[in-house]
Design a binder for these strands. Sequence first.
DNA 1: CAGTGGTCTAGACCACTTC
DNA 2: AAGTGGTCTAGACCACTGG
Lengths: 242, 242
Amino acid sequence: MNSKYLSIYNEIVRKIENGELSRDSKLLSENEYMKEYNVSRDTIRKALNLLEQDGYIQKIKGKGSFVLDINKFDFPISGIISFKELSQRMNLKSETIVNELELIQPDAFISKQLNITKKDKVWKVVRSRKIGNKRIILDKDYIVHNFVPCLTKEICEKSIYEYIENELNLKISFAKKEITVEAATDEDKKYLDLKDYSMVAVVKSYTYLDDTSLFQYSESRHRPDKFKFVDFARRKGSIHYG
Amino acid sequence: MNSKYLSIYNEIVRKIENGELSRDSKLLSENEYMKEYNVSRDTIRKALNLLEQDGYIQKIKGKGSFVLDINKFDFPISGIISFKELSQRMNLKSETIVNELELIQPDAFISKQLNITKKDKVWKVVRSRKIGNKRIILDKDYIVHNFVPCLTKEICEKSIYEYIENELNLKISFAKKEITVEAATDEDKKYLDLKDYSMVAVVKSYTYLDDTSLFQYSESRHRPDKFKFVDFARRKGSIHYG
DNA sequence: CAGTGGTCTAGACCACTTC
DNA sequence: AAGTGGTCTAGACCACTGG
């Protein structure tokens, strides 16, 4: 679990996040890090490549690696992160209300999204997320029953991902997400404090385990004025059409 | 420019995109690819890691690498991609209308976004993007004059990125993006076919060159019903709070 | 010129999956 | 036991940057 390059990555992330390494400052060179950690160059390079991928640093050939300040203030919501992790990370006082929790036969839409038959059962979970005493986010989750035999209100109030990863020992691997803006439904109006807004920002996620099985489809429906999605992207050199 | 591992990456991407390697099919093992391409294992691993990062494949320890079909249908808008590249990629018939093009002294907001003084000049470009005969997207770009001495209507109609990369030989490296939903401004109403919508989806981008200098701030304002942002994300194993 | 990161190689050991 | 991907090492050459 704890590889050398990940430890080094984490240590440098910590130094950047607590300001020990400040914006635009130069990291040690790969050679110097080799000596500092007593590891091979490749191990250092793995750590630095990860940092670059995540937007912490920029490597410049012939010059060195430099700290970016992109992640300093607001953390990316991009990536796969649970509401609990996010609110912890941003130090928000938050609350989760479980509106619905049931084991259902999927309708046509859901069985198509999850690529299952109508005989397979799925957990349907509908939760409101309160921030600052307003219900801001409506999370609708559909989870394939085969992978998650049991689900309780307590788990849903805490964190489903935590339960799936720590109790069931499943490995969440990757997700495809779609962000759209849609007309608010009656359900949105019922479960959210929408004020006069007639639209919601919707994040649809298809989440997969590390054996490539699709286990969850979810819609995260946000009050538009409170919605913000932050992303860090790198330009691809070689793009092909056709 | 053309490294071995990138050639191998591109060749496998091509095979996946044209269906030669279909969903859930197994790639060759690293050992087999070593023989096929006559390269070392590390070179193969670089190529496969890139494929995994980009959501083309999933590697499973002890089993092999498997093709995902995530990217098959709609291409991710995430990443740094120009409108021209995007519309080419998706085979859309599109048109760009240059509404404004001028060299200005930045106001307080823009000079703050671009981290420059009010004496530095910036290009302001306002363009409407037509798809299917409707003005769907309003792009407002602010580009630091120091990096781009000259900008014409023709360049703005074609592709500013193409000009910057191919003519000026600057290297666009990374960007921070924010997606929000905002009330439509008078400018939005003027330059877009908004129908009755009172809100727009806004993508704000801060784009950097490979020497980490910030050269562009832009707002891409979309009619909400036509907006879609697709993202592929991988779960990070070790997340730290604090 | 020396120092930097980028690529490539060859070999080793490990943990996991499959039979 | 054999095959897979994951990690780590040591050494080589290159292209780019800076003084």
